[in-house]
């Protein structure tokens, strides 16, 4: 059932609506005090979550009797961004994921953000699905701020994502949806996978299995699910960042998600005007190439790759 969570009039004959699909248990005799929120479309250029939202609803519609809790699917927190190939909120150019928890008396983006938080708060768990951006391709991963690691990692292990990246907390990240929900006691896991503007079905299916596995663990899904792949946890390793030192066209040579050896070529930066190679990029370490530049135009400083390495 589609429910409008928040809305605001647009100037000319239209309202902006934030909608969710609520799927509840058919069997009214089972208690349904448990609720999972699947949230995506915060960044209008990230579409991997569109597949997951559709696929989850499709599967639940087919097997409604196995549902023992409420599933709220929010496929588009930023509908105007999705409609205009735009990452931020098109009218104000604000990044929606930098204005949470919002403000009911603030301008539209902040008002909508506050209504979203109100609607999701109190859920048993929220899964906030992102797709990196158009520049970088990511191995499916759960990102958790180090301050939340103890409480969130146990749940993240069910998600069937190969990597759990526990990152340092940063003040700017206090304005994300995940931080806002976590700080009011609603456990929220952030998924980053794939790349902007594309759908990687295989990653979507992998995450769907993880969502069912977590729902089964929480008692929201009545069936047993197959065991998921145990994730790599980043805190046991180190993350090496590789940035461009030249502006040009990046041509990748290594394969995303492959294991690379120290000194192995990751790619090069080309200058098509002169036919020269401006920079050759070799892996500084041996490890797992979990992030790789997808968008070829790079500038001095552009992130090209991230590698997980070290010994646990």
């Amino acid at each position: 059932m589609a429910i409008t969570v928040a809305s605001a009039q647009l100037p000319v004959g239209e309202s902006l609506r934030i909608q969710k699909n609520r799927i509840g248990p058919l069997d009214r005799t089972v208690p349904h005090d448990k609720r999972i929120c699947i949230v995506t479309g915060t960044h209008g250029d990230e579409l991997e979550g569109q597949y997951v939202a559709w696929r989850l609803a499709e599967k639940l519609n087919k097997n409604p009797w196995d549902l023992h809790g409420v599933v709220d699917i929010y496929p588009a927190l930023n509908p105007l961004g999705i409609n205009s190939v735009y990452r931020g909120m098109p009218q104000s150019d604000l990044d929606l994921n930098r204005i949470f928890p919002g403000n009911g008396n603030g301008p539209v983006p902040e008002y909508l953000a506050s209504e979203m938080v109100k609607d999701m708060q109190g859920a048993t768990v929220c899964i906030d699905i992102h797709a990196s951006n158009i520049f970088l391709r990511e191995l499916p991963q759960i990102r958790i701020s180090e301050t939340m690691a103890d409480s969130l990692v146990p749940m993240a292990r069910f998600m069937n994502m190969p990597l759990i990246w526990i990152h340092a907390s940063a003040t700017v990240l206090e304005s994300t949806l995940a931080h806002s929900l976590n700080s009011v006691g609603t456990p929220t896991l952030v998924v980053e996978m794939g790349v902007g503007m594309r759908i990687t079905r295989e990653y979507g299916e992998q995450l769907i299995e993880g969502i069912f596995s977590l729902m089964s663990h929480l008692g929201i899904w009545g069936r047993k699910t197959p065991p998921t792949t145990p994730p790599i946890i980043s805190s046991d390793w180190q993350v090496s960042f590789i940035n461009a030192d030249h502006s040009g066209i990046f041509i990748a040579e290594a394969n995303h998600t492959a294991r690379v050896e120290e000194g192995e070529p990751l790619g090069f930066i080309a200058d098509p005007l002169s036919g020269k190679v401006l920079e050759k990029i070799a892996s500084p370490v041996s490890g797992l190439l979990f992030t790789l530049r997808e968008y070829p135009v790079v500038y001095e400083g552009s992130l090209l790759a991230r590698i997980l390495h070290g010994t646990p």
């Binding site: 009039q9 647009l10 100037p11 902006l16 009218q91 603030g106 539209v108």
Partner: peptide
């Protein structure tokens, strides 16, 4: 000269 609802 255009305004939406709930704008400052």
């Amino acid at each position: 000269n255009l305004v939406g609802g709930h704008e400052v």
